[in-house]
Each structure stands twice: as structure tokens, then as C-alpha cells.
């Protein structure tokens, strides 16, 4: 079938290749740099004031070398690296020794996944709908007003925007908790008090991701729709006196949505990075905060693990979106 050959296979190849290239890069970048993670770790320990006698340093170097998978030639290391990855083994965290990295990631993942999925879904959908309607009625006052508003919000980087929300609603008007994923000491359960507590904690990080996301999707959708307004099939529908509501929903939004699906696939990595940064601002207990702690403690293995894991996760997400795309575009489905 043409669809499989032209659409499916290239995407699967791309999937495997991106993972391969990405992880290989992650493996080699540190090895090509002049710094040595083992020496670094020891220097870090020293700078924290620990006294280390020469013998224990030697022992430590050996330990660390083994732990970081730095034994043997680069090639041996590389092979061993992949072997461990396939076993789901990312090594152990150095500063939460000897907890395996994968276990830390597993604990943090649900928070990030929940935050990311919910906010992306809301932001994407709302942005598409708003942008679609505003793009169709782009000569109206309210549509232009939204434009100006988007112009102000859009350029904010994740960190700065999250930070402004934190200042506004955490300190000036302290309406929401500013840190953590749930109140300390609360036991996770399927009860309303716990769920509402989680939602309250998620509110500010979610809001900052949603507002930035909606703005961006709004703008791109509005641009697409403004061009679609001139498309033959929209003009024809108007010429044919089709009701405006129908034109907006079935003609304009339905078609304008397609490039946004592709864009979502292309941008999911950046959205993910944004979520990590936002988590850091609000010390939300997901991968972002895990990463932050890893950076602060110089936990090289953990940073590596998060990076490799994220590459696989995001590439997979992209593959899933790409595979869903034909459901929305019959031109790909039947060709």
C-alpha cells in the first residue's frame, strides 16, 4: 500500500534514526569535552569541604569510573551504554546513592506527564478554537484586541513568564501555593481533599504553561486561518451562502487544524523543555525539579538519565502524533 510506503515507513525510520543519533550524541558530547566527570565530581566534593585522603580518592576514582560507565575504550563504553539502556538501566544516582536513576525518573514522571498532557491539550485546543474564530473574523475589533494581547504575552520565555505569575499570585496576591505538588505530609489517596490539594498546587504551573501555549497556538492558527479565508473552498462556501457557523467550524477550523497537528509534533520537544523549566520555578515534583536537584548536586548520571529518557519519550510522542495525523487528513489516508 502506498500509504505504508510513503507515510509510515519513512516515519518509522526517522523515529529510530533520531533516537539513535540523539542518544549517540548524548554519549559522545561529554567524552569529547575536555572535562572529566570523575575529576569533576571529586572537585565538587572537595569544594564542599569534605576532606579526602589520597587512598580514598583512588578508590573513589575507580568507583566513579565504573559507575559512570567509563571503563574500557570509547567503543566498548558505547556498546555497554546501549546494552544498559535496553535493560532500562540508567545507572545509579550519585547523590541519592544507591537509588537507581530509573527509579527516580519513575517517581517524577507522573507529575510531569500529568502537567504536560493536560496543559498541552488545553492550550492546543483553546488556541486552535480561539485562533480559528479570531482569524475568520479578523476585521472585528475584539479580534484585533486579542492580537495585541498575544503580541505582549508571546515573546515571554517560559522562565520569565512563570516567574511573573509566581510573583503575582504567590506573593502579591497569595491565592495559590507556590511550591510542591501537594501539601507536605498529605497521603496520596483518591479523596477529594487530596485531589483538590493537588489541583491547587498544579494551578500556577499549569496556568503559566497554558497561557503561553494558548497564545502561541492562537497566533499561528490565526495566521493560518487568515490565509484560509482567501482559500477557494472558503470563498466558495461563502458564495454559496453556507451558514457562517458552519464555515467557521467545518471549513476554517477543520482545515486550519491540520498544520497545527504537524506543528505540535515538531514543537513537543520545546514544549516539554518549557514544562521542565516551569516545574523548576514552582518546585513542582516532576522531572524538571529532579533535573534541578541533579544540577545542584552535580549528579551527572541523573542528568544523563533524564536526558536520554526524554529523548526516547519525546520522539515516541512525535511518532504517535504522526501516526494519528492521517485520521484527520483524508488526503494522506487515501493516497
Amino acid at each position: 500500500m502506498l500509504f505504508i510506503r510513503r507515510y509510515l515507513i519513512p516515519r518509522l525510520i526517522q523515529y529510530v534514526l533520531v533516537i539513535f543519533v540523539g542518544i549517540t550524541a548524548v554519549f559522545f558530547i561529554p567524552r569529547l569535552l575536555p572535562t572529566d566527570p570523575v575529576a569533576r565530581t571529586i572537585a565538587e566534593l572537595r569544594s564542599r569541604g569534605s576532606y579526602l585522603d589520597p587512598a580514598s580518592i583512588d578508590a573513589m576514582v575507580a568507583d566513579l569510573t565504573e559507575m559512570y560507565g567509563l571503563e574500557g575504550s570509547s567503543f566498548d563504553q558505547y556498546i555497554a551504554f546501549w546494552q544498559r539502556l535496553f535493560r532500562g538501566d540508567f545507572g545509579v544516582s550519585f547523590f541519592q546513592f544507591p537509588t537507581p536513576v530509573i527509579q527516580l525518573i519513575k517517581a517524577a514522571l507522573p507529575w510531569t506527564l500529568g502537567l504536560l498532557l493536560v496543559t498541552t491539550a488545553i492550550a492546543w485546543t483553546a488556541g486552535i478554537l480561539l485562533g480559528g474564530v479570531a482569524g475568520y473574523f479578523n476585521r472585528q475589533g475584539w479580534s484585533r484586541a486579542l492580537d495585541v494581547l498575544a503580541m505582549v504575552v508571546r515573546p515571554m520565555p517560559y522562565y520569565v513568564f512563570a516567574f511573573i505569575l509566581l510573583l503575582l499570585f504567590g506573593y502579591i496576591f497569595p491565592l495559590f501555593p507556590v511550591a510542591g505538588g501537594a501539601s507536605i505530609g498529605r497521603q496520596p489517596s483518591f479523596s477529594w481533599p487530596y485531589i483538590s490539594d493537588v489541583l491547587r498546587h498544579a494551578f500556577l504551573p499549569a496556568m503559566s504553561l497554558i497561557i503561553l501555549g494558548v497564545t502561541a497556538w492562537f497566533q499561528t492558527m490565526k495566521l493560518v486561518v487568515q490565509n484560509l479565508n482567501a482559500a477557494d473552498f472558503v470563498q466558495y462556501a461563502r458564495f454559496g451562502g453556507i451558514k457562517e457557523r458552519r464555515i467557521v467550524s467545518r471549513y476554517v477550523i477543520r482545515n486550519g487544524m491540520l498544520p497545527q497537528i504537524t506543528a505540535l509534533a515538531l514543537l513537543i520537544g520545546q514544549i516539554f523543555s518549557g514544562a521542565l523549566i516551569t516545574e523548576i520555578v514552582f518546585t513542582y515534583p516532576g522531572l524538571g525539579t529532579l533535573l534541578y536537584n541533579a544540577i545542584m548536586t552535580g549528579d551527572y548520571n541523573l542528568i544523563m538519565g533524564i536526558t536520554v529518557f526524554s529523548i526516547v519519550a519525546i520522539t515516541t510522542a512525535i511518532l504517535v502524533i504522526d501516526l494519528l495525523y492521517p485520521l484527520f487528513d483524508p488526503r494522506i489516508r487515501y493516497n
Binding site: L33, L266, L267, I303
Partner: peptide, 23 residues
């Protein structure tokens, strides 16, 4: 384009952090 797509797709922020941690 495959190379540049890979750059777009991979969470660059993490790679930059990884590099920044080392240097």
C-alpha cells in the same frame, strides 16, 4: 533536513544543560 529536524525534535534544553554542567 534530517539533521535539522533532529535538532528541533530533541529536547535541546536538556542537552544544553548537560553541556553547561560539564563546562
Amino acid at each position: 533536513m534530517f539533521i535539522s529536524d533532529s535538532f528541533l525534535v530533541i529536547p535541546l534544553f536538556l542537552i544544553i544543560v548537560l553541556l553547561a554542567v560539564l563546562i
